[in-house]
Every structure is written in structure tokens, then in C-alpha cells.
């Protein structure tokens, strides 16, 4: 396997939830790829579709959610075409996922050891399961592993629980780890430890990681490439240098400006993005960000901007980047 091998490619994904209030178009034509051994950050605010995009990959959409179109190619297979049994064979083995709240993700009445071994049993992994679970617990720094295995989730702190979640996710040595806001519930000092651990595991197991977060600081510190989402669309993608230093989309610019500048001692006023995120039941016809955009033009309200490549690694969807975008007024 080469380093540049594409592990996951999502093409024009559309995911909707069918509710009493109507169809909620949570993901509206998202395309991206992930190389082996890479860390991709997905950033965006609540309701931007970042979590639903990744839940779609594992088909964890519940009864009301459905992938309405698009392809999810993982190691050459289209995951959208797999049946329940086939996708279960992938979950926890080739692709695993960790969530924001480690307390609700662990079963309080089962010992940590039992829960660690669950994935090994389900996927009929050969070898000494006890030894494998001790190894992985030591890897994530929950020691002494042998005693810790017999304990229950309430006996651990938040940071340790997240380490256990990571151990459960990594025990089958997956190709892809999806981490959905893994450090949001944790304190900054613990967050730094957990992010460090994830980077170390990624290097040692050559696992690819997709890190969903709303914290641009976490993205800047941990990710190779970044996708920014807004209103169910991917609005900008690039390397972290592209996103932070060659910012192309006004929403990304707004996000970067709305956090306090660490070098700014004289406490200049923050520059917020005015307005509220769009309604996904009646999504706007044109650009999802048009209503809050400081640079909005008539074309933005009427037509969805197509993706424009700014370099081999950097693309964004904004009419400002199109030569004739402004002329259509």
C-alpha cells in the first residue's frame, strides 16, 4: 500500500432525515477524499452536517435518516450499496468511530474489559483476547491495564474514559478512525493529551483519522487537510496552510475572525458572523451562506456556487472566486 493511496472517497453525498415537519436535507452534495495515514479535519457549526456526513459513511442514520444519493467508496467498495450484515462487518473492524461524550458511549453495567473484547468477538479476531485488550489499554495509557480491565466506566475520569473509547476503536486496528468531537467535553490539558495520543496511534498503526470538531485551534494543531462545512455543503477544502493562510470562502474568513487573536493584547472588538444558520427544511436556493455573507451578490441568492479549484489541494464554493460571478448582477 502506497502512502498516497485513497482510502475513502465520498462523491456527491446527499443525506436527509424524514421528519413530521418535512424532509431535513442535512447533507447536500458533499464530496471529499481521504488518503491512507492522513488526518482530515471537518469543521463547521452545529447543524452544518459534519456529523451526519460521517454517520452516513457507517450508515448510522437511524430509522428516519437516509442516503438519498451519492457514493461512498471505501477501499474500492461502495458502502451505500452494502446490506446491514455487510456494513456490520466493517463497523468496528475497518472503520471505527468515537463520540463526544465518553460516558454515554460506554455501557455502565459492563466491565471495561468486556466492552473492549466485544469488537474482537464480533469480528472473530484470532488470538488471546485478554492479552490484546491489555496491550491496547497500555498503548492508550490506562494503567495498570490488568486491574483496570475489571473496572466499570464510572470508576474512570472523563479523560480516561475517552482513552478507553479510543482503545475500543483501535483494538481491531482499523484503517479509518472517525472521531466526532472527541475532546469537546474535556478540559484543555486533557484535550492536549488525547490529541497527542491520537496522533501517536495514527503514526504507529498508519490509521487514517477523520476528526470532526468546531474548534479551529484543534484543526490547526492536528490535521493535514481540512474540510469546512456550512448548511450541509462543503464550502472549502484544502491543506491546513490553504485554509488558514489562503482562506478563500467568506464563511471560513468569518470563522477565523470571530475567535480572539492570541497576539492581540489591546483587546480589539471581536468580529462576529451576523445572523443565524440556515433552515435545513427550507434550505436557501442559492449559496447556504448568502444570508449572512458580508460580500453577498445577487447571483449568490439565486444560484448555488460550483466548486472552484484554486490549486491542486485547495477548492472552495463561492461566486467571488468565479471570474464572471460578479457580472451576473
Amino acid at each position: 500500500m502506497s502512502d498516497n493511496e485513497i482510502l475513502l472517497e465520498v462523491k456527491d453525498l446527499h443525506t436527509s432525515f424524514f421528519t413530521q415537519a418535512g424532509e431535513v436535507k442535512a447533507v447536500n452534495g458533499v464530496s471529499f477524499y481521504l488518503r491512507r495515514g492522513e488526518i482530515l479535519g471537518i469543521a463547521g457549526e452545529s447543524g452544518s452536517g459534519k456529523s451526519v456526513t460521517m454517520l452516513s459513511v457507517l450508515k448510522l442514520l437511524g430509522r428516519s435518516g437516509k442516503i438519498t444519493s451519492g457514493e461512498i467508496i471505501f477501499k474500492g467498495r461502495d458502502l451505500t450499496k452494502l446490506n446491514k450484515r455487510e456494513i456490520e462487518d466493517i463497523r468496528g473492524k475497518s472503520i471505527s468511530m468515537i463520540f463526544q461524550d465518553p460516558m454515554t458511549s460506554l455501557n455502565p453495567v459492563l466491565s471495561v474489559g468486556y466492552q473492549l473484547r466485544e469488537a474482537l468477538r464480533r469480528h472473530k479476531i484470532e488470538g488471546d483476547h485478554k492479552k490484546l485488550s491489555i496491550d491496547i489499554l497500555e498503548r492508550v495509557g490506562v494503567v495498570p491495564a490488568e486491574t483496570r480491565l475489571k473496572q466499570y466506566p464510572h470508576e474512570f475520569s472523563g479523560g480516561q474514559r475517552q482513552r478507553i473509547m479510543i482503545a475500543m476503536a483501535m483494538i481491531c486496528k482499523p484503517d479509518l478512525l472517525i472521531a466526532d468531537e472527541p475532546t469537546t467535553a474535556l478540559d484543555v490539558t486533557v484535550q492536549a493529551q488525547i490529541l497527542d495520543l491520537m496522533k501517536e496511534l495514527q503514526r504507529n498503526f498508519s490509521t487514517s483519522i477523520i476528526l470532526i470538531t468546531h474548534d479551529l485551534g484543534v484543526i490547526a494543531g492536528s490535521c493535514d487537510r481540512v474540510m469546512i462545512m456550512y448548511g450541509g455543503h462543503s464550502i472549502e477544502q484544502g491543506t491546513r496552510q490553504d485554509i488558514f493562510y489562503k482562506t478563500a470562502h467568506p464563511y471560513t474568513t468569518g470563522l477565523l475572525k470571530s475567535v480572539p487573536d492570541p497576539d492581540n493584547i489591546n483587546n480589539a472588538r471581536l468580529i462576529p458572523i451576523e445572523g443565524q444558520p440556515p433552515d435545513l427544511i427550507n434550505p436557501p436556493k442559492g449559496c447556504p451562506f448568502a444570508l449572512r455573507c458580508p460580500d453577498v451578490m445577487r447571483v449568490c441568492v439565486e444560484n448555488l456556487p460550483p466548486e472552484k479549484f484554486l490549486s491542486d489541494t485547495h477548492k472552495a464554493s463561492c461566486w467571488l472566486l468565479h471570474k464572471n460571478g460578479g457580472d451576473k448582477n
Binding site: S157, G159, Q160, V188, T189, Q191, A192, Q193, D196, D215, L216, G217, V218, I219, A220, G221, R240, Q241, F244, Y245, L256, V259, P262
Partner: peptide, 27 residues
């Protein structure tokens, strides 16, 4: 010092340069 060194910095180059002073153990 340790707490402030752990704040994520939304700037890749500065983030790579800084040194986190890790805290051992749990509270």
C-alpha cells in the same frame, strides 16, 4: 503555565512552534 500552553492556537505555524507543558496524572 501548563494550562495556558495547552490552549489550541488557530494558526498552524504557531501551533507547530509552541511547546505544550504536559500535566501528568489526573486531578
Amino acid at each position: 503555565r501548563s494550562l495556558l500552553s495547552s490552549i489550541p492556537i488557530p494558526d498552524p505555524d504557531k501551533s507547530d512552534e509552541r511547546k505544550i507543558i504536559p500535566l501528568s496524572g489526573e486531578i
